[in-house]
Amino acid sequence: MLDKRKIRLATTSLAGCFGCHMSFLDIDERLLELIERVDFDRSPLTDIKHCGPCDIGLIEGGVCNAENVHVLREFRRNCKVLIALGACAVNGGLPAQRNHLDLGQCLQEVYLTGEGLVNGQIPNDPELPLPLDKVHPIDEIVRIDYFIPGCPPSGDAIWKFLTDLLDGRTPRLGHPLLRFD
């Protein structure tokens, strides 16, 4: 009998703090069980730079700059199932707390007029992605199949969700795994 094809999993962090990825690593020794069942594609764990065709994509962080938009669209193109991982991906989270401020004024204050600054300059290297006017949750840019809230979601919550999905069950987070904080 043929071996079951392994599931391909890609992960990335957009406007996030990598806390959700740290939490993902909190599944600890269950990682060994996971790699029996999945191969990692693009992910900070593999250092693969671009996403190939995948079954599952996990996105941490919201969308705060032009590069985030490109990466998110690359994931959507390649992943059959795309999952928003954590508060920032779900509703913008901490980076979105700048949304009531004017971006131009923020840059001015941080790089030009802030206390103790001399000869300041707003970074304009062409390699730097341009910041967006507002930070957005990822489901405002592409279609998202599932959401795992939490800041970060616990390792147990991520494990429950992934194993539900891999086993063909409808993923479900009840008390006490479903948390927004």
Partner: peptide
């Protein structure tokens, strides 16, 4: 409603109902 920085998180009825009714996204 940025729960991670809210002092009411865990004691908040809006959040508790969102848990109860399994609201996963806005």
């Amino acid at each position: 409603h940025f729960c991670p920085s809210c002092e009411k998180s865990g004691n908040c009825m809006l959040q508790a109902l969102a848990y109860e009714l399994e609201m996963l996204s806005p």
